[in-house]
């Protein structure tokens, strides 16, 4: 169990596909950054995901995807001192590297193949 499950978090989306989780984060964050699979957050959670993995900031809340093998993907947010640190870290590193603020970066989600699987899976 990662530390995420022991933290106070908000569930924005649950049991969905990773693609839907990414789109939710892109649409509902003030700032969006893209990280690689395995990007480490909150000391011991390594993000599972399909590149490009979107993570976001909304106020002081850090928004990110969380995937569980039996339950699908979730969008969670955490709003505390640690989330501010995570957002600052992204602003310092990713902001400089990729200009990945939402307004500057076109959505890369179009690269993801869209098939009927998502709908099948939801049934």
């Amino acid at each position: 169990m990662s530390c995420i499950e022991q933290m106070k978090y908000t569930i924005h989306l649950q049991r969905t596909s990773f693609k839907d989780a990414r789109e939710y984060i892109e649409k509902n964050s003030d700032e969006v950054y893209y990280v690689s699979p395995g990007y480490k957050i909150f000391k011991d959670y390594y993000i599972i995901g399909i590149p490009p993995i979107a993570v976001g900031a909304k106020g002081n809340a850090f928004i990110f995807p969380y995937t569980k093998p039996c339950y699908g993907s979730f969008v969670l947010s955490i709003d505390n001192e640690d989330s501010i640190k995570e957002i600052d870290r992204l602003r310092e590193t990713k902001g400089k590297e990729t200009s990945s603020l939402k307004k500057d970066k076109p959505s890369e989600s179009s690269k993801v193949t869209t098939t009927s699987y998502k709908d099948l899976w939801k049934k």
Binding site: S17, F18, K19, S36, P37, G38, I48, G49, I50, P51, T67, K68, P69, C70, Y71, G72, S73, Y117, K118, W121
Partner: peptide, 15 residues
């Protein structure tokens, strides 16, 4: 057999 499994496999292929 589901989207989460595919997501895990994609992560593995990346790391």
């Amino acid at each position: 057999h589901n989207d989460a499994g595919m997501t895990y496999a994609t992560t593995m292929s990346s790391i």
